[in-house]
């Protein structure tokens, strides 16, 4: 199967305090997919994403990624050296619920930080990014529709705008995969759709595979090409977003949970 970009086998994570975040998760991701992972808080969604780019180290199992189309898939959980882990992170972009921009820097500088992996330490400390990098940064800001905000301080932007800056920063890495950890959980419904639309655009126009954690089912149905549901660190559902009916909903979110309608 040449178009499998990511293959996870029996992934387990036990935290030092004994909490079991993941209890053996296996699935595959195809190139170009918009995969959404749903589940309650504490179901292991974040842990799963963070294991993929090694912000968290898995206890057990395999995560095989083919960084470019021709290369063999390699098990990234085996990576030991910081250099290998940095190379992995370079090819995987990530956006977060709290945006995680550097508040005091300008928007364009935040976007340029996506190029840190390919900039030497000395040049990055002196802030010497190439003209090509700057043009690229402005292009990505254009893509997410906030080129006019490029020279404002990042913390002067609204939440939705900050998340778009974060997307632009991730795009600067020229990633194969974009991980999105609850990207719209701290945004209002209208802004949520704007941000999700930009993610969809990135997925369609740039062909970047997206793995996204969400908990709002109405958004999931609109954007996902495939859904995986986690409960207590295990996969309880895998399939089309349209296949999640009332029964499945109750299984994933617990008996008595009601689906609320938003926007």
């Amino acid at each position: 199967m040449p178009n499998v970009i990511l293959e996870i086998k029996n992934l387990k994570k036990t935290y030092p305090n004994g909490v079991r975040g993941l209890r053996g998760v296996s699935f595959q991701v195809l190139r170009g997919e918009f995969l959404v992972i749903i589940g309650l808080s504490g179901s292991g969604k974040s842990t799963l994403l963070r294991c993929i780019n090694r912000l968290t180290d898995a206890t057990n199992g395999q995560i095989k990624i083919s960084i470019d189309q021709t290369a063999e898939k390699v098990d990234v959980t085996k990576f030991k050296s910081p250099t290998a882990i940095r190379a992995l992170r370079k090819s995987i972009g990530m956006i977060f619920q709290q945006f995680n921009l550097v508040p005091r820097h300008t928007v364009i500088k935040n976007v340029l930080m996506g190029k840190l992996a390919t900039t030497t330490t000395l040049k990055s400390i002196l802030g010497l990014f190439s003209v090509a990098d700057r043009t690229e940064a402005l292009n990505y800001l254009e893509l997410v529709g906030i080129a006019d905000k490029a020279y404002l301080r990042a913390d002067h932007l609204s939440g939705g705008q900050q998340q778009r800056v974060a997307i632009a920063r991730a795009l600067m890495q020229k990633p194969q995969i974009l991980l999105a950890d609850e990207p719209v959980a701290s945004l209002d419904p209208a802004t949520s759709h704007t941000v999700m639309n930009y993610l969809k655009k990135v997925n369609h126009e740039l062909g970047i595979t997206i793995i996204c954690n969400l908990h709002d089912l109405s958004i999931v149905r609109q954007y996902a090409t495939r859904v995986i549901a986690l409960k207590d660190g295990e996969i309880v559902f895998e399939g089309s977003p349209l296949a999640i009916n009332e029964d499945w909903f109750q299984k994933i979110y617990g008996i008595g949970a009601l689906e609320k309608e938003i926007g």
Binding site: L55, R89, K90, F96, N100, L101, L116, T121, R169
Partner: peptide, 9 residues
């Protein structure tokens, strides 16, 4: 974490 996820040292 934001910076680390970009592959920064």
């Amino acid at each position: 974490e934001g910076i680390q996820s970009c592959g920064a040292n």
